[in-house]
């Protein structure tokens, strides 16, 4: 199947009093129809900013998308003005935000908020939109949806609110659903409910999903392909199994090593990654992970590596050093 979204050389910066923050520094990736793409990284690595840039949701000023293109159905999303963008945002590409507590308007009913995107994008009557809202709320497993559309967000629990968010994101049958850490604020048993729900909906409705998270555990059971981000770059991208079985970048290896595993019988000291993530006040001219990297060589300090296919099978990594030998690639 073909790519439905192609992002090339995306760069986003924020002007602050202390200087320019280089949040995203040239990110390129593509997503295919019906594919689930995981984007993994720690706070401040640019995973959310890169997605919000695509949808024109970066507050300007201070933020600005300074370079790149994002082709969706032949249109460059980054060149659209706000009115044009509205045709896409919420209908063909929609977002589920992290915090189900603050993403709702507390003074509007659940039904009104769920129906709103459909009403705006399809120019239909209120009755029609509400009917559709009920259908989608039932689809995401809200019991008794017909009565509950008259309730307000505070009458719903966290897990239920996240279900409503998903219904709201799906009501216009988007081609791409961007899920920005949708389960981070939820408990594990509720998180498992939401993940199962999204998997079921993906199989039923066939949309592509971009799932942003810092949790390597969730992504393992959900994604087809994973982008690992660090310092505003994609440093490794691979099919999910290849990434976990054969991580290539020292940062990915470090992240996997710092997770305790429940199937380990004997005690293992966690491998921690020393040091701190970069501040991004300057655009790195060399590898952003170099200061924390156990394998760093001279070249890492002078040249920024680009994504290169080292493992075959669509497994790309941006690193000068072969992690198996600890020596520079020839």
């Amino acid at each position: 199947m073909g790519d439905i979204l192609q992002v090339k050389g995306l760069e986003t910066q924020f002007r602050t009093r202390n200087g320019t923050i280089h949040a995203v520094n040239g990110v390129s990736f593509a997503i295919r129809e019906g594919e689930t793409l995981g984007i993994v990284g720690e706070s401040g690595c640019g995973k959310t900013v890169s997605m919000m840039s695509l949808l024109g949701l970066i507050p300007t000023p201070p933020g600005k998308v300074v370079a790149g293109e994002a082709l969706f159905e032949g249109v460059d999303l980054l060149k659209l003005n706000n009115d044009q963008m509205r045709k896409y945002r919420g209908s063909k590409i929609s977002v589920v935000f992290q915090d189900p507590m603050t993403s709702f308007n507390p003074v509007l009913t659940i039904g009104r908020q769920t129906a709103e995107p459909f009403m705006i994008h399809n120019n239909c009557s209120k009755a029609e939109a509400y009917e559709r809202a009920i259908k989608y709320l039932e689809l995401v497993g809200i019991p008794n949806a017909k009565d509950r559309i008259h309730e307000y967000p505070h009458q719903f629990s966290g897990g239920m609110r996240q279900r409503v968010m998903i219904a709201m994101g799906l009501i216009c049958e988007p081609k791409i659903l961007i899920a920005d850490e949708p389960t981070t604020a939820l408990d594990v048993t509720i998180q498992a409910q939401i993940v199962e729900l999204v998997k079921r909906l993906r199989d039923e409705l066939g949309m592509a999903i971009i799932w942003i998270t810092h949790d390597l555990g969730i992504i393992a059971g959900l994604a087809d392909r994973v982008n690992v981000m660090y310092g505003g770059y994609i440093i490794e991208t691979a099919p999910v199994k290849s990434l976990y079985a054969n991580p290539q970048h020292p940062y990915t290896i470090g992240l996997l090593g710092s997770l305790p595993r429940m199937d380990e019988l004997s005690y293992r000291r966690l491998t921690s990654i020393d040091g701190l993530p970069p501040t991004l006040l300057e655009k790195p001219t060399y590898c952003p992970f170099e200061p924390r990297c156990p394998h760093a060589v001279a070249r890492c300090r002078s040249e920024n590596p680009t994504l290169v296919n080292r493992e075959g099978d669509e497994h790309y990594v941006a690193c000068w050093v072969d992690p198996k030998t600890g020596k520079e690639y020839k």
Partner: peptide, 10 residues
């Protein structure tokens, strides 16, 4: 309910 960081087990 705890996800495993391992796609083969998941």
């Amino acid at each position: 309910a705890v996800p495993f960081p391992d796609p083969f087990i998941e």
